[in-house]
Write a protein that binds this DNA or RNA. Structure first.
Length: 496
RNA sequence: GACCCAGUAGCUCAGUCGGUAGAGCAGCGGCCUUUUAAGCCGUUGGUCGCAGGUUCGAUUCCUGCCUGGGUCACCA
């Protein structure tokens, strides 16, 4: 408390004095329970039919208008705000003078009374009994509003993220984003459960990290005397489950990536990965499309406004090969270009490329710059270069440079990544060893060789389709938020 | 990591072409038994993000740093 400045400390001191007066008058400021029989939303919905009916509600005091021997106030519960009318002659002089007069905005109270309509028309609870449920000793932001329009709105993003509880009190509509998030995740679980998938949990602490190209967080286990990594993906463990005979698995996992943060990236984020034995990339496309449409339906939206563009989530998703998109955009035949030609072409477009980049990285760069931003309506892009896809099977009937991989783009952003999973253990070993060479050359995001995973693959893995989806991004899309911080309850911020 | 913007009372913000600051709300005291951004009278509260520099004097100008936001780069 000593770090509070004097003006704030003064407010806290006044509230502590009130707390003491309440105790001295024999009221418990922090009692054990209260049983409200109604939520305020249902009072407002029922309307005049409720007039005269006794109800009890509980919530936080968010406005207070004292007029001597009678007062109006609003209390806010999870469902909304309710005006209450507290009159000395109805609650009793002792409660009014010794308890009610020592209340502040922010206190949590329970009230029993009956409903009436004031002369200005607001359905109001006429309080007969008032119980303090928690005394607040630290002030809230201003909560003034009229006709739904807030004054002195609590909208400083830093304060809102650092003190989320205040955000939810001052801006209760923000809670709907997180209710929708819960509904989306529930619909995802339901989607897989009804299709016979098993939900699993694999290690977040891993002795070797893998399954994606990213930099990990490291930690240390004292008893094992061993370095551990926080997972960047759960892919390799899920594949071991497929090898072991689980044929359909999914996991909603927190991943941790030690990389930059911005409106699309939080260092810890939620991924969905699912794998189905005996299926391939094209089966996964269909499953992914169905899944996203199911999740969208859970929010009741058919179209969303995302990044200033309207996206229709009911239409069939587009399916395009990377070259088809690049050729159309550039007017060239990109697949006929060799690495050197691709480099020169990218340089001619003034893209940031270097001669150290391989064929796959160059193609990925071109695609990211020229095509991704235009992929507004949901589009599956397939035929990825092998060099940047070490966990995907080579494209069937191809020349060996491409793999069976798709990524799903919506609103210019990547939402899903999928492979016909590489199941050839010898090929997989070579690809991971190639990644290890990239690491030696300084690519900190290149993947590492996981001997345990390779040995599992050697036991034999059925043909399998697998998909990874960024759940936070999906929530962003479906709740029309343009920052990942707005769909994560406590986004990462620097400690101050 | 680079660039741009911001940080003044508990909250929302003004302001100082350099002379150590104001408002509304909240708070405190008083009046008020159907108010609703309640009202009326009175009133407390600030290391002006932090640290240096220039200056007789810095919250204001300069430099560095901290925190957040935005854009870009990388990634999901």
């Amino acid at each position: 408390m000593s770090q509070d400045h004097r003006s704030l400390q003064q407010i806290i001191d006044f509230r502590l004095e009130k707390l003491a007066r309440i105790r001295a008058a024999g009221y418990d400021p922090y009692p054990y329970k209260f049983d409200p029989d109604t939520q305020v939303q249902s009072i407002q919905e029922t309307g005049d039919d409720l007039v005269g009916t006794p109800v009890s509600i509980a919530g936080r005091l968010v406005s207070l208008r004292k007029m001597g021997k009678a007062s109006f106030a609003h209390i806010q519960d999870e469902s909304g705000k309710q005006q209450i009318y507290v009159k000395r002659d109805d609650v009793g002089a002792d409660v009014y003078n010794n308890l009610f007069k020592n209340l502040d905005i922010g206190d949590i109270i329970g009230v029993r009374g009956d409903v009436f309509r004031t002369k200005t028309g607001e359905l109001t609870l006429h309080v007969r009994e008032l119980t303090l449920l928690a005394k607040s000793i630290r002030p809230l932001p201003n909560l003034k509003e009229k006709d739904g329009q807030a004054f002195n709105e609590f909208d400083d993003k830093e304060l809102r993220y650092r003190q989320r509880h205040l955000d939810f009190i001052a801006n209760p509509e923000v809670k709907t984003i997180f209710r929708q998030r819960a509904a989306i995740i529930r619909s995802i679980r339901n989607f897989f459960d009804t299709r016979g998938f098993v939900e699993v949990e694999t290690p977040a602490l891993q002795p070797i990290y893998g399954g994606a190209s990213a930099r990990p967080f490291t930690t240390y286990h004292n008893t094992l005397e061993q370095k551990l990594y926080l997972r960047i993906a759960d892919e390799l463990y899920l594949k071991r489950l497929i090898i072991g005979g689980f044929e359909k698995v999914y996991e909603l996992a927190k991943n941790f990536r030690n990389e930059g943060m911005d409106r699309n990236h939080n260092p810890e984020y939620t991924s969905l990965e699912f794998y189905q034995a005996y299926q391939d990339l094209y089966d996964m496309m269909e499953l992914t499309e169905e899944l996203i449409k199911t999740a969208a339906a859970a929010t009741g939206k058919r179209t969303v406004n995302f990044g200033g563009k309207t996206i229709d989530l009911t239409m069939p998703f587009e399916r395009k090969s990377m070259f088809e998109l690049l050729n159309k955009k550039t007017g060239k035949t990109i697949e006929k270009m060799a690495e050197q030609q691709l480099l020169e072409y990218a340089q001619s477009l003034k893209l940031e490329v270097s001669s150290k980049m391989n064929y796959g990285q160059l193609l990925d760069k071109l695609f990211g710059e020229l095509i991704e931003p235009d992929l507004v309506q949901p589009t599956f892009v397939y035929d990825y270069p092998k060099a940047i896809s070490p966990l995907a099977k080579v494209k069937r009937n191809g020349d060996g440079t491409l793999v069976e991989r798709f990524e799903l783009f919506i609103g210019g952003m990547e939402f899903a990544n999928s492979f016909s999973e590489l199941t050839d253990p010898l090929d997989q070993r070579q690809r991971l060893e190639a990644q290890a060479k990239l690491r030696e050359l300084g690519d900190e995001e290149a993947q590492v060789v996981d001997e345990n995973f390779l040995q599992a693959l050697e036991v034999g893995m059925p043909p399998t389709g697998g998909v990874g989806i960024g759940v936070d991004r999906l929530v962003m899309l479906l709740t029309e938020q343009n920052s990942i911080k707005d769909v994560i309850l406590f986004p990462a911020l620097r400690q101050i």
